[in-house]
Structure formats: C-alpha cells, structure tokens
Design a binder for these strands. Structure first.
Lengths: 332, 332
DNA sequence: GTGAAAGCGCTAACAC
DNA sequence: GTGTTAGCGCTTTCAC
C-alpha cells in the first residue's frame, strides 16, 4: 500500500541506510547517490513514516499546548509565537482544548505519557502543585500565562502583582480616588496577584481600601454586570473600576451603559489582557496587555532547552506588561 | 530509563503477549494474570509507548484539525463538538493554526503524510480543488465550515446560499426594502454563496438589486466600517445592512454609532456566524448561527467512518442554520 | 562512501 | 490461557 524506505532503496539500487542518510542530510553520501535517491523519492511519492523514525529516535519533535478554552484571543497569539519559534528549530506545535475540565486535560496529558509528544505547555491548568511537580520529574512540561503557586515548574507569565499595581496606578494618575475592583474568588493565582497589586497601589497613594469596592465572582461575563450593579447601588459610588479580565470589564461597561452612564466619562473602566474585543467595543477598552507572542516564543525556547539538557530549568520568568489607555478611561 | 512492556512482563512473570492482551482488554486472559499484570503496571508506573503501538497497528487514532485562525470563537465550539464525539470512539483531536498561510498549512499537513495522524479536517483551506482531490485519494481528509468548489471531498457546512437568503428575508420581513450587503471579494465560497442568497431573496420580494448597495472588501474588520461609511454617503441610504460575518457587522455598527446613528433603530444590521461577541456588543447583534457543535460531531463521525471503510464518502453535507434576531435589527 | 543488521516498543499470528 | 516470534519503518553502529 504505502511506500516505505525499503521500496525506495530497492528502486534506487542502494541500501536503506543510504536512503536514510540522504533523508537526514547526513554527510558521507556521494553526490551521485544523493541525487539518485532524491529522484526515486520523488518518483515514488515517498514520504517517511515518522512513527518508525520517532520510535527509533525516541523523540517526536512535537510539543503539545493545552488551552483551557479556545475563546481567548490571547491564546491564539501565544500559540502563533510558539509556532514561529518552534518551527525554526524543527519542532511542531499541536494544541488541544481542555475546556477547563480536568478529565479532558488528563486525557490530553496522555500524549505526554505515551510518548506521542516530547513536551507540553499548559496555558492554565487544573492540576495541583504536587501533581505538577511529580509530572515535571518525569516529563518536560511548562506553564504559560498562568502559574501555580508552589509548583517548581518552568513558568512564563507576566508579573501579575505589578501589573495590577500599574493598572490601578494609571487610574489614580487620571485623578481617581474611588476605585473599585472586579475580581474572581477561586484559586486563580493571577487574579489574586492582580488584586494584591491593586491594593498596594491604593495604599501607596494613601487611599483607603474599601471592602464594598471589591467584588469577587466567577470569570463568567454576567458577573461583571453584577459587580457594576452592586457598585452603582452604593451611596458613595466609585468613579473607576478595574476588572481582572477584559470580558468582565466589557460586561461591566454594558451594564453601566444600560444604566444610562457614559463609560469613560461618568465611569472609567479598565480591563486586563488586551483581547481583540477591546478595540471592537464601544468605547474601546483600556487594559493591560501581556506580551503574548514573546511569551510563546520564550516558553518554547526554554522548554526545548530542557528537552535537550540534563539539568532542567524550572524557574518562573516574568515578562513585561503594558498599560494601554483607550476610551473607557478618562480623567475625573 | 522509561519502563517498557518487557519490564512489566518480566516483573509480573508473564510474557509480553499477556501484558499486551490485558492492555488491550482482549479476551483469553485469566482473571489472575489480568490482576497481576495490572498491579505490576501500577507498581512500575508503566505507560505504553504509542509510537510502538501505532507503528505496529498502522494507525494513531488521532485526527488533526487545521484552523485558519484561532480568533474565531466558532472554531472553539466546533472543536468541542469534534472532541466529544471523537473521544467516545477512542480518537483524539489535536489542532493546529495555519493563520491562513499556505506554507504553514502545508507543514501541518505533513502530519498526515508522515502517518502521525490518521486524518485531517480543515476549517477553511488555501488549497485548490485539484490539490484537495489528489490528497483525498491517498489520505483521509474532510472540510468543515467552508467548502471548496469542485473538490470531491467530504464536506460539512451549512447551506450558505439558503442562509444568506434567510438573513435577507428576515430583514425584508421587518419591512426593509433598502438592504445593503457587506461581502468580501476573493474566492471565499461561503461568502459568495451568502451573497447569492441575498440577491435571490431581494428578487423574490420584487426588490431591485442595486450595485451601490453591495460592498466587496476583505475580512478585516475596518472593512465593515468603510462599507458603512460608503452606504451612509449615498443619497438614497439603505435602512438595513447584512454582513457576511459578525466581525464585519460589528465594525459596521461601530461606524454607524460614531456617525450618531442608533443601530437597531436608524439602521438595522445583521451579521453571520453568531460568535460570542454578538451577545457582548451593544446593541446585541442579530445574526445567522451555524450548528457548530453538530457540525463538529458530524464531520468526525463521517471521517472516522471513512477511516474504517473501503469506499469513502466524499459528499457535501449541509446542516441547518438559524436566523437569530436581537437588538441590532428593528422594524422599519 | 556504502551495506548488513540490530533494535526502538509494540501487536498478533501461530503454536501449544 | 499463555508463550514465542516475526515484523511494523526507521536510524545507527559497525564493518568494509
């Protein structure tokens, strides 16, 4: 049925070893044989079976990326960065979506266990630090975007605490003193860090941190609306709101608009992530951007280094973020 | 280093065949051996190497999905549908993003050639009908969402012509007679079909099709704004606009809003795809929804059937769409 | 510069 | 019910 290296060798009148050599561009093969083999390959339409190759070489040159969701435009950019870098080094990137379900994530991690991929990077995970640490002992894994506290695993993200600080600071610089926060409860580390940064910024500016200005909910969009509703029901309403994700921020904006407020004037809103929606929404959304492309490249670079080295790097790398002011925030 | 089936066999005091048998749940294994082997597997932390298995079985039970972009929330839903169905049948779905670059797409198709995956489904492709037909002769491929004219390849999509018809019809039913279209030039089949449907709907209603009401551009968002600007510069302005994608529709809405128009009242706008943005935008966007989940399930079902049958099904399947009216469209 | 042959980890045909 | 063994397609050592 399908043509193998043997067929090529027979047809070209050389040994399989020679065919393999030209396939892998190794030295020690005469110009003549090389040309002959290449012609035969073309003639027969031969394509090497990587199952054989990978089995023999004990490597696949494929890295798996597990995403919690496919909705996040952030992930697309990160993966593009990964792909560009990986391809240059002869690696391929494949991705799988876990929809944040641990049983799906587990199933996908199987590709690591069964040697179908050389390594995996997780853009958010439901695994615990212990589980990750155990995994990291036997396999090459990395976290990107979202770290896990206590995990000694190669991680590439932004400094969420500082980013939260800078976001709140930007609002303060616009003259706001009554700044609310839409955050998520749960164990999501990045959100908690952003929240901590927000609190530090207020304190640094001598602004009292008020409980009624801090909302905890889920990542679901409607939660942003609920938060805004709550804030606007207060006697002493905030003039600015910082949400730990753009989706929450947009939902908050929608709610504010439905209450007759003009976002950017009556109330300032700042998001986080700089997803493509930020530009599309009216008003365009101020936010904190993560260097997605760079993060993708960097984590792949480090992971491939780990793949090919004895002593693995399991450090936490924080890449630079950027506050972007658009129409949704204004001076008080 | 890594533990193999041999190690398990030795440790358990049975042959590799027996281990293999319990691994694959085949009959003819005594309860006792089975338990013993399973215990040994757990004890040794053994995980079968699928490179060996796949090589031997000449199949991987993995299907590759190639997406033109990762921004499209549509794709996420389709892939979820694929995954659910595939997993049930023991298959895994992996995905790769081509960013619409044919050289990346080609690289990714390599996984098909080198037998790393059993089949591939393309959510939009830059390959020609001839190329696809040739591919389909030797490999198991399918198209989803976006067909290619002249390609005799298993395809699952909606009936774009009818969907375009129904979208325009819905606007007509709201009393509109001056209905403009934002489409894309290019060879994108789905858009052309939607456009044809739009034209047929107008004709059926006895409405003249006016050149100045039809805009051709790219899929880039700003193009939707340009279109709206053009329409609003006409002496005889349209009262409704149908865009062949939600992104274009949203951009058109934004432009209209910036011109002081109230979308849904002064001008009605209808999109296509029902991406998650539709609900988030203000006003929420009327659109045509594709049965993403179902499409994903269906194409995987058919592809797996092809994988395991002699005579391959290369038909075109059109699944049902649905017009969804929200705030962006109103009665005239 | 080239070929013979071992072996990567697994499944399955065959023998018992 | 179980074991022996050939072989999937490839790379690589070793010999020449």
């Amino acid at each position: 049925m399908s043509v193998t290296i043997k067929d090529v060798a027979r047809e070209a009148g050389v040994s399989v070893a020679t065919v393999s050599r030209v396939l892998n561009g190794s030295a020690n093969v005469s110009e003549a044989s090389s040309r002959l083999v290449n012609e035969t390959i073309k003639k027969l339409g031969y394509s090497p079976n990587f199952l054989g190759r990978n089995l023999r070489k004990r490597e696949t040159n494929v890295i798996l990326v597990i995403m919690p969701s496919s909705e996040h435009s952030l992930y697309g950019t990160i993966i593009t960065g990964m792909q560009d870098y990986a391809n240059k080094l002869g690696y391929d990137i494949i991705s799988a979506v876990s929809n944040s379900a641990s049983y799906i994530e587990t199933r996908q991690m199987n590709m690591l266990f069964n040697r179908t991929v050389d390594g995996a990077v997780m853009l958010g995970t439901s695994l615990s630090a212990e589980e990750l640490n155990e995994l990291a002992e036997n396999y090459n894994i990395a976290l990107c975007c979202e770290g896990v506290e206590g995990a000694n695993v190669l991680t590439v993200a932004v400094d969420d605490e500082q980013a939260g600080y800078d976001a709140a600071k930007a609002l303060i610089s616009l003259g706001h003193r009554k700044i609310a926060l839409i955050s998520v409860d749960s164990a999501v580390v990045s959100s908690r860090k952003r929240e901590n940064g927000y609190i530090r910024a207020l304190k640094d500016a001598g602004i009292e941190v008020r409980d009624e200005y801090i909302w905890h909910g889920t990542y679901l969009a409607h939660n942003g609306g609920d938060a805004m509703e709550h804030f606007m029901s207060l006697d002493d309403k905030p003039t600015a709101v910082f949400a730990v994700s753009d989706l929450l921020a947009v939902a908050a904006c929608k709610k504010a608009q439905s209450m007759g407020l003009t976002v950017g004037k009556d109330i300032s809103v700042m998001g986080f992530d700089n997803i493509s929606l930020c530009d599309m929404f009216t008003p365009s959304l101020s936010t904190v951007s993560q260097p997605c492309r760079k993060m993708g490249e960097f984590v792949i670079r480090k992971l491939i280094e780990n793949l090919t080295t004895a002593n693995k790097d399991n450090k936490y790398y924080a890449l630079g973020h950027e506050v972007i002011l658009r129409e949704s925030t204004g001076k008080i």
